[in-house]
Every structure is written in C-alpha cells, then in structure tokens.
Nucleic acid binder design. Sequence first.
DNA 1: ATAGGCCTGGAC
DNA 2: GTCCAGGCCTAT
Length: 257
Amino acid sequence: MPELPEVESAVRRLRDAIINKRIVRVDVLHPALRRRLSPARLRSVRGMRVTHVERRGKHQLIGLDDGRTLHAHFRMTGDWLIDRATDPLPRFARAAITLDDGVRAVLNDPRALSTLDLHAANAAPDLGLGPEPDDPALTPDSLLEVLSRKRAPIKPVLLDQRVIAGLGNIYAAESLWHARISPSTRASSLTRAQVKRLLTAIRRVIARATGARYTDPSVSRLAVYDRAGKPCRRCGTPIERIVQAGRSTYFCPGCQE
DNA sequence: ATAGGCCTGGAC
DNA sequence: GTCCAGGCCTAT
C-alpha cells in the first residue's frame, strides 16, 4: 500500500481511532515482529494513553503519555484496519491494539514485513529523512543543490528518503513522467528547469494521491506505473519497464528525456 | 551499484 | 512450479 499518500491516509484513520484513548490490550500475532522488539516489550504499552499520532515520510509515530513513542512502518503491504475487539481478526492480522472503548487497531500485513519499534521517553528517533514534499524549505534550488552531489540515475535517487521523505517506487516514476524526465538521467546533470518541473510534478502527484480515496493507488489513474507495453497517455509510445537498483521503473521512451 | 534477505500472496 | 511485488537493510 504504502507511500506517503497511503501512509497519510492510514495515519488519519488510526488517529481518529486511538487518539486520547487508553490502550487496554496488545496482541502480538506474528513472530516476525520480534526482529525489532520482544512481544513483552511491545505489550508494555498497555495502560498508556495515546497523546498524538503523526506521520513523517512513510513512518508513523504514536505518542504515549509516559513519553515513549511507538513507531510503525508498513514496508510493502502493511495497513491499519480499524474494527472492534469483538470482531473476528482479519486474515493477515500481525498485531492488534485494543482501546478502552472497544475500538481495535489491527496491523494487517500479508507479507509481514511491517515493523513496530518502541522508543524511550526523551529519545526522539532519528529517522534519517529529508524534507516532506510540501515543506516550503524544499525549493528548486535546494533540490538542485542536493541532486548536484548525486551521481546515480534520478529515479533511484528519488527513492532515497534522505533526499525527499515519502516518495516510493510508484510515485517516483509517476513524477518523472509528469516532468518529462528520463529515469536514467544522472541526478547531477539535471538542469534547473528540469528540477523545477520535477518538484512541481512531485507535489502534484503526491497531493492528488493524498486527496484520493484510499483503496490502492488505483491503477487506472496512474500514467506509467505497471503499464509496460501500453501506449503513453501523452504521446502514444509504448511504455517500457527497466530495472534500476533492483526495482522496476516504468517510463515513456518517447517523451521523457 | 548490485544481490540477497526479510515474508507471503497472487498472477501466470 | 516461476516471477513479481508500493520498502529498506546489510553485505559484497
């Protein structure tokens, strides 16, 4: 599910479900969660009240009233499903947090790659993130400056969360298509005009996806992602799929320079 | 920069 | 069966 827009949607639903409530029960339902913390430690959030729920990039930070922070990351296929403690658990439930009013937030994740971490009070985690796409401090010039030091192709650079927080494989490709920039262009060789178009495109793509109703990044409204062989919506040239840094990249060889 | 690993399901 | 997957870390 989850790039910035989908995580933002999930955070909003989670916030509505748990803010200012007390956690009365925590269920750890998949052994892979142990990779980050023991079930006993995760269960130690029982009894805490939720003070805030925030998103940073693709990370989710859940503030507890003892000062600790529960830190969730969906990786590839995670999502929050909000239901009631009396409901049957969803098929891919990996953890469940029950609140004092009977509402339950279920971490549902078919691939079980999601992570939950717990940070001590007064220990704000360093997430290693660059600016959010809508950060006013992010400007064509600041982005140009960062990209000028990157020798890799622009597409994998856009996946580097230290450059811009929250972009993932789909919206990086979509943004490059909108900006008419080839994903193979060396980041440091982008012109200022191209960087300006790219930033505008990123903001448009993210804003539009964030406003969309959460289902999946509904394939039909995507310009290039997963459209290999299909005609470019702008120039008709068949969309190509290549692999960069181990990830699929979709682009139009006809109108992306 | 690339490959492999984490996990599992779905499409073919 | 095989391949692919919206993320990200570690090792080579």
